[in-house]
Simulated scan of single mutants.
Amino acid sequence: MSDNVANLGGGEKSHPMEFLLAEELNLPSIGETRQGWVIEHRNNAILIDIGAKSEGVISGSELQQMDDETRALLSVGNEVSVYIVNTEDQYGNVIVSYAKAAEELDWNKAEALMASQDVYEGKVIGQNKGGLLVKLGQLRGFVPNSQISRRRNYGEKQNGKLTNSMIQTKVIEVDRKRGRLILSERAAEKEARQAKRAEILGKLSEGDVLKGRVINLADFGAFIDVGGVEGLVHLSELSWKRVNAPADILKVGDEVEVYVLNIDEDRERLALSLKRMEPDPWTIIDEYYSVGQLLEATITKITKYGAFARLEDDYALEGLIHISELSENHVNHPRDVVQPSQTVTVRIIRVDKDQRQLGLSIKQVVSDKFVEADLEKLTTIQE
Rank of each mutant, 00 (worst) to 15 (best):
D3F: 14
D3W: 14
A6T: 08
N7K: 11
G11P: 02
E12P: 00
H15P: 00
L21A: 13
A22K: 15
E24L: 09
L27R: 15
I30G: 02
W37L: 00
V38H: 01
I46K: 02
L47Q: 07
A52Q: 03
S59W: 14
Q65K: 14
L74N: 08
S75A: 13
V76E: 01
N78P: 00
S81R: 14
E88W: 04
N93S: 11
V94T: 10
I95P: 00
N108W: 11
L113K: 09
E121W: 12
G137Q: 12
I148C: 06
E156M: 12
L162K: 01
N164M: 10
M166Y: 13
I172H: 01
I172M: 04
R180M: 14
R180D: 06
S184K: 04
A187G: 00
A188Q: 00
A188R: 01
K190W: 03
L204S: 09
S205I: 13
G207S: 06
D208S: 07
V209A: 04
L210R: 10
A218W: 04
A218F: 08
F220M: 00
I224N: 06
E230M: 09
E230P: 02
N244I: 07
V252L: 02
E255Q: 13
E257T: 10
P279G: 03
I284Q: 02
E287C: 02
V291S: 00
G292T: 06
T298Q: 10
K304S: 07
F308A: 13
Y315R: 05
E328S: 13
S341M: 11
I349G: 02
I349V: 12
R356D: 01
Q357Y: 08
Q357G: 08
S361H: 04
F370E: 00
E372G: 00
D374F: 04
L375I: 08
E376N: 03
